Simulated scan of single mutants.
Amino acid sequence: MYTLLRNILFLFPPEKVHYFSMNVLKGLCSVSWIRKWIKSYFTPSKNDRLITVFQTRHATLHFANPVGLGAGFDKNARYLRELECLGFGFVEIGTVTPKAQPGNDRPRLFRLPKDKALINRMGFNNDGAAVIAERLRQWKNRQAVAKNTLPLMIGGNIGKNKLTSNADAWKDYALCFTALFDFVDYFVVNVSSPNTPGLRALQEKDALRKILLTLQNINISKPHPKPILLKIAPDLNDAQINDVIELAQEIQLDGIVATNTTISREALRTPASVVKAIDTGGLSGKPLQQRSTQIVQQITQQTNGTIPVIASGGIFNGSDAAEKLAAGATLVQVWTGFIYEGPGIVKKICRELIADQSLS
């Protein structure tokens, strides 16, 4: 059923289809009985094996299941109710910047169906920290009324504005951290998107230390500090990954998200002329699967599993998720897989994970 629908949707521009689809879902979920039906149909059956504990220095987070939605899908926290109805254990909103910004010029999102991949150069388009914080406040109030045993967990993915210099980037991260603090369950520092000029230079050890220590200092001043994670690029070499790991251990970072999109275009099935015409942007989906798993393994092995990892990259089914968990990840995120596999992806992955005896 979804394959037919996907073939129709793929006839239209990706970004327009994204908002059209989510707004249709939002309209359906505004009707109580339809919302209940969608939730009952797509939410994974309750199973103790799915409940995931994410243990960090600052907090112990409990997730109804280990499958989350990566940042960039719901940039502005507009669709949390709808995504909860589809069964996600957690949703990472953002990337959020202090000031609202339109992002890069369209078109900026492209499909590569032969590779089960996407290329995006969105450029941190978002409504700004203050507006998004207010939406999250309203969401949190509704969650409190609902009194869910294991509510949808929210991650706040934060970045810098395009016009902010790298020298002042730490200020943007601090502003976002402070604005969102009361309304998210954990933070992800995004210095690895390829779509903001110069951003990836912030992954260098000294620049990264400045940002993370600033956030840590704000964090420990709070009565209940929140976990802070770092999202890294798959294009880092071993020495750069080692630097990240050393810094994470030095400042007692709460975790790493591995990985963001890649600027590599190796071994794609899509014709080179098509890829060249798209030009710049971060590649996600199946071509990223092997590299992201390798980085999860590297982090886990070098830290003896002491730094929790959220794995992202090429996850389309339970086998893909199991691969990441076996490599050492605690949680997994989908994004491109959601586009290609459809709204049933969380239930499908969870069902296959439960059936996987190697994870017992």
Results as ranks from 00 to 15, higher is better:
196 T>G: 05
107 P>C: 07
226 K>S: 09
306 T>L: 14
165 S>T: 15
289 Q>N: 10
298 Q>R: 15
340 Y>R: 03
233 A>P: 05
296 V>R: 10
285 G>C: 04
340 Y>D: 07
128 G>D: 06
306 T>P: 00
288 L>N: 12
343 P>G: 12
255 G>V: 06
351 R>C: 05
344 G>E: 14
170 W>A: 14
316 F>R: 04
229 L>W: 12
145 V>D: 10
165 S>N: 10
292 S>G: 03
356 D>I: 08
343 P>S: 12
217 N>Y: 07
202 L>R: 08
120 N>I: 12
288 L>Q: 11
66 P>V: 02
53 V>H: 14
269 R>E: 15
105 D>M: 11
315 I>P: 03
84 E>V: 01
131 V>H: 09
268 L>P: 03
131 V>Q: 09
328 G>C: 09
216 Q>N: 15
138 Q>C: 13
289 Q>F: 14
84 E>A: 12
102 P>F: 08
202 L>E: 10
255 G>W: 08
309 V>P: 05
136 L>W: 00
135 R>M: 02
172 D>S: 06
328 G>N: 08
56 T>D: 11
352 E>F: 10
284 S>P: 12
91 V>M: 04
231 K>E: 11
253 L>C: 08
50 L>K: 11
226 K>I: 10
171 K>W: 00
212 L>V: 09
338 F>S: 04
63 F>N: 07
205 K>R: 15
